[in-house]
Amino acid sequence: HNLTITQGKLFFHYNPKLCLSEIHKMEEVSGTKGRQERNDIALKTNGDQASCENELLKFSYIRTSFDKILLRWEPYWPPDFRDLLGFMLFYKEAPYQNVTEFDGQDACGSNSWTVVDIDPPLRSNDPKSQNHPGWLMRGLKPWTQYAIFVKTLVTFSDERRTYGAKSDIIYVQTDATNPSVPLDPISVSNSSSQIILKWKPPSDPNGNITHYLVFWERQAEDSELFELDYCLKGLKLPSRTWSPPFESEDSQKHNQSEYEDSAGECCSCPKTDSQILKELEESSFRKTFEDYLHNVVFVPRKTSSGTGAEDPRPSRKRRSLGDVGNVTVAVPTVAAFPNTSSTSVPTSPEEHRPFEKVVNKESLVISGLRHFTGYRIELQACNQDTPEERCSVAAYVSARTMPEAKADDIVGPVTHEIFENNVVHLMWQEPKEPNGLIVLYEVSYRRYGDEELHLCVSRKHFALERGCRLRGLSPGNYSVRIRATSLAGNGSWTEPTYFYVTDYLDVPSNIA
């Protein structure tokens, strides 16, 4: 807008934040220059609390790290170098490059900038070799853009010569660093050979998330399962459950009422301010606690030095998902009996873990797994792929695949051998790939016309006998059925096997 004052003059007093240069501009645009008398524009009460600059400061050096910015700028000295009290560095987070010096300023003089007072450097006698002032900004957020400017702080001049310097606002972004852990990993099994893994992005990506790394490792069953005799009275049979499938998407929606109208769909109840505040506090606490764990609990591995020492970490090797089922080394339970199943799973520490690289999504279907087997899954978020990966501390989750139908069934015939004193040795093959492992066998036998009897055969007993022995049988026709019990439950009964026990007292003698 054009402003013209045809008559009258300007009068400025007691404006401590208004620089004289701005008042002189007002004289020019209003056409009143030359009308004012000496005392109409006070030299001592206008701009006496402001830094009124008329020179431009330029930054000469900028260096960044993930949490620091090192700045240096060209030296500046007023005509009387004693008038320079120091520099004021202003900075704040700036997602967009549209910041002005006066953003967030209120009537009390406060604003949204963080201000650092910096002492002037030592003055050199040689004007050509003056030290460049600077400042190291610490405690910054990774991968965050900051708006920065600097200006001088000078003393009051009796001659009211307006001098000083100020830089333009520059924008500097800190470097990326390792992201925080992925949030809320959930693993479920939808079949006997697959596990579905879902997660949420890290709360602090500290860069642009480029991919996720998912490692999985087959877990050995508890050692007590191999040692305890679950045929003993009072000892509860062990059981394991597989990871249940995901709930429906509708039930997972946030901010939804727990109660549904019987007449149909209901609208979600909005969260109160107290609920939102509580969630923010919980989120802040979780982030602080995660940072504490990362800094205190997890110790970084030592990389190899120039002395030739090897990095103890196993090298990563990509495998196809079809090879995942046989990740671990199978060892027989008892070496003397080769027909026992290889369900003991000690994992070799030198073995390469299978892994998958996930790009542009937060889910993965891990296939080719062994049925009813526990897996430990390790999830890392990465925001750099080359020249070397920059990934987060791992988040861990466990899951067990679903049982395989008929995996616990005894394959092959049940054979028998009759000894003296009416002892019958029953023999059968253990299931080759049971659900988890076989903890015991149930032997059901009966003599024709009598009630059915049951015998429990422990895992250890089966390994020693290759089956079991029935003792003290009365003469007669017998039928026997056997079924295995694994961590997933009972298998199917075998087809009945028949044998006849004679009275050993009636056996004919070869003595003449």
Rank of each mutant, 00 (worst) to 15 (best):
D204H: 02
P205C: 05
G207S: 02
H211T: 11
Y212S: 12
V214R: 00
E227T: 06
K236T: 03
L237E: 09
S243L: 12
S243K: 15
P244M: 14
P245I: 15
E247R: 10
S251A: 05
Q252L: 11
N255W: 12
Q256C: 09
E260S: 08
A263L: 12
C266R: 09
C269I: 04
T272N: 02
D273Q: 12
L277R: 13
L277I: 11
K278D: 14
E281W: 04
R286S: 03
F289W: 04
F289Q: 03
F298Q: 01
F298M: 09
K302I: 09
T303P: 09
S304P: 14
G306V: 12
T307F: 10
T307N: 10
T307S: 10
E310N: 10
D311M: 05
D311S: 11
S315P: 10
K317Q: 14
S320E: 14
L321D: 02
G322S: 15
V327I: 06
V327K: 05
T340M: 13
S344C: 10
S344A: 13
T347S: 12
S348E: 09
P349M: 04
E350R: 09
E350I: 08
E356R: 09
V359S: 12
N360Y: 10
S367F: 05
G368Y: 06
I377S: 05
E378K: 07
D385N: 10
E388D: 06
C391S: 02
A394K: 04
V397M: 13
A399S: 11
A399K: 03
T401L: 07
T401S: 04
T401N: 04
M402S: 11
P403M: 02
E404M: 12
A407P: 04
V424Q: 04
Q429E: 14
E430T: 08
P431G: 04
P431R: 02
P434K: 06
N435T: 00
I438V: 10
V439L: 10
Y441W: 00
S444R: 03
D450K: 12
D450P: 15
V457T: 11
V457L: 15
S458N: 07
F462Y: 04
G467R: 10
C468R: 14
R471K: 04
R471S: 04
S474V: 13
G476Q: 00
G476M: 00
Y478S: 01
V480L: 06
V480R: 02
A484N: 00
A484M: 10
E495N: 12
T497S: 06
F499Q: 02
Y500L: 08
D503Y: 14
D506F: 09
P508I: 14
S509M: 09
